[in-house]
Design a protein around this nucleic acid. Structure first.
Lengths: 345, 345
DNA sequence: CAACTGACGGCAAACGTTTGCCATACTGCG
DNA sequence: CGCAGTATGGCAAACGTTTGCCGTCAGTTG
């Protein structure tokens, strides 16, 4: 029979997937047992220098690549991690995904991505299908009930992003600090009445943001109303804008930038002057927030760093502490300005 | 020892990952052989009705979930697919990822995501690490040399997105049609000199777009220059804008929208009137192209559909033909207008 | 009633690794 | 020279599944 598994100069244009080189092939070629090859490659000090050299040379020459699936079985670990996000098309998640992918990849792990589309059922589905495949989960903005999370934690390690549950390592952006800054900013501009355009009620961040906003508003003697909930998409910004405007508030704070940008677009189309008649602010500082019209005042957070942190936590790196809160700072742009009443004294 | 693997009402707060229920457990409980359980679940007509019922009931009661890794070994297929993109933070890819994830997931496949950061080495790296794990690859905007692709195809099935190589199934957006429409549009507005702000020279789409633009420009008797290459990011739009402007062209066509948006931002900051002094156009119609300032004239394409198509192709669905070209249409917005010389006759 | 047929269930060998344990051979020491 | 101790390499059993093959038993047919 012909050679096979040479350094890959064979041309197999139509052929089915050529069988990969296995430990057995290398062992046969090197004249040793498979176990020896296995050790020579993954546990080098366990085998004599002479054989080690020879085996490694043969393996290199034959272009041997361990089969990760086969490794995973006896090891019980797959070196794969899952990242579940609620909306893969939300730019907010891009940075998270990239940070996580980079960090996982640096640690020799593969990242499996899942899009839960904001549905707890789909999320639960994904978790089930993945739990025999991955060593751990990153659940970003998870909408799973606490009980389900607890149960999952029994089988796999889990890290939460932008959600806090007792007993879970998590990374969150400082929504309450951000909210405080929003309120202070609006208060300083003379706003006395704010409308919060809420996100999905099962989104953890929605509750946190609302509570922080309302408590700080109360402290500052500012009226605040919660409107919605609205789907956090640009499209649904239209409804939100109309509802917000009719509430009579002079400032609209949206659950996130997707919604805020939608609001901005709607207001522009309706001919409402921003920030002349009404100010708008959001959360996340997503791609586009800096060049929409007018540029959006929003709470920014180091999301790529969050992606890395979340993987570190999952991998049990000492450097990452369980309850990491990433700083979130208000970035003031042109969508917020003095309250209308104060401009006409 | 206590029960284990019951329907999951056990609370293991601190415990290590509880061992999962296996075929053996079910077999023992049901008093049959493992092979019978296996068949009862995945090949039901192969086993008698009475036993089948019983086994299935036991499996359900014990909450048995097949271990995908263990299944993959004898089957030789993992039911996982890889999607490699050159830049996960490019909004253009969001739709692709979502479409692909949805379609894969619908077919019972898992999607492994890789970010190659535009580097052929990183791409090759990912491919190696993934090839024992996934059943197939989607390479989006791959920068791998043809030879490497051919070699990979020998081991795994491969589908290309936005790149065409002989012998490979691929999905591309109709860059040449889009380019024609750009040139026609600009010509109709009186432009006589265009600058193409090129992307990375190893990007397949860059070559296609440039050739299509220049050939149609020639046909229309329009001057066209290729400037760059530029990194296709918003940040590098600044350089591109300056270079483009100094070329004296009245219209700038950017390699993609990321670059185009960067150009727009730079021009606005420099006080250059768009489209009064210069028109700008791009490709992809990404998130943000419709609300940047001014809204960008660009070539749009059904990218989520592309994501689905690419998976269909990989899975060998009959419905998807090997050389799929998705329509790309020019979306005219405010960033393009009459050439300056024609407005002052 | 014997022989044939098909349905059904079990045994065991894969799949490609890892790893505990054992046998051998070599080292150095008394 | 004999012994203990150690370095080295091989055997074989896992890991959890799938699947080819075979035996058994019931049902059918002549």
């Amino acid at each position: 029979m012909g050679h096979k598994g040479l350094t890959a100069d064979e041309t197999v244009p139509a052929g089915g997937p050529a069988r990969a080189v296995t430990l057995h092939d290398v062992a046969r070629e090197a004249g040793v047992a498979v176990s020896t090859v296995s050790r020579a490659l993954s546990n080098p000090e366990r085998v004599g220098a002479r054989t080690r050299e020879r085996v490694q040379a043969v393996a290199r020459r034959m272009d041997y690549r361990p089969n990760r699936i086969a490794q995973a079985l006896p090891r019980g670990r797959t070196q794969m991690l899952a990242l579940l996000v609620s909306d893969i098309t939300n730019p907010h998640n891009f940075g998270l995904v990239r940070g996580a992918e980079a960090q996982a990849s640096a640690a020799g792990f593969l990242l499996v991505l899942g899009d839960t589309q904001g549905s707890p059922e789909l999320e639960s589905d994904h978790v089930c299908r993945l739990s025999s495949v991955v060593d751990g989960f990153v659940l970003a903005s998870s909408r799973l009930p606490d009980a389900d999370l607890l149960q999952l934690q029994g089988r796999r390690s889990v890290v939460l992003f932008n959600r806090e549950v007792d007993g879970f390592p998590s990374v969150v952006t400082d929504s309450v600090g951000g909210s405080r800054q929003i309120v202070e900013h609006l208060a300083a501009l003379g706003h006395r009445s704010i409308a919060y355009l809420a996100g999905p009620s099962d989104a953890w961040a929605d509750g946190v943001r609302w509570r922080a906003l309302s408590s700080h508003a109360e402290d500052a003697g500012i009226e605040i109303a919660r409107l919605g909930p609205f789907s956090p998409t640009v499209d649904h910004g239209s409804v939100a804008a109309d509802v917000g405007l009719s509430s009579g508030a002079t400032a609209l704070v949206a659950f996130n930038d997707l919604l805020a940008i939608g609001v901005l677009r709607r207001l522009e189309r309706r001919g409402v002057d921003v920030p002349g008649e009404v100010s708008v602010a959001g959360y996340d500082d997503i791609f586009g927030s800096d060049f929409c019209h007018p540029p959006l005042t929003t709470v920014t957070s180091p999301v790529e760093q969050a992606g890395r942190a979340v993987i570190d936590l999952l991998l049990g790196a000492r450097s990452a502490r369980p309850g990491l809160v990433l700083p979130a700072d208000l970035r003031v742009r042109e969508s917020s300005g003095p309250a209308p009443s104060t401009t006409i004294p």
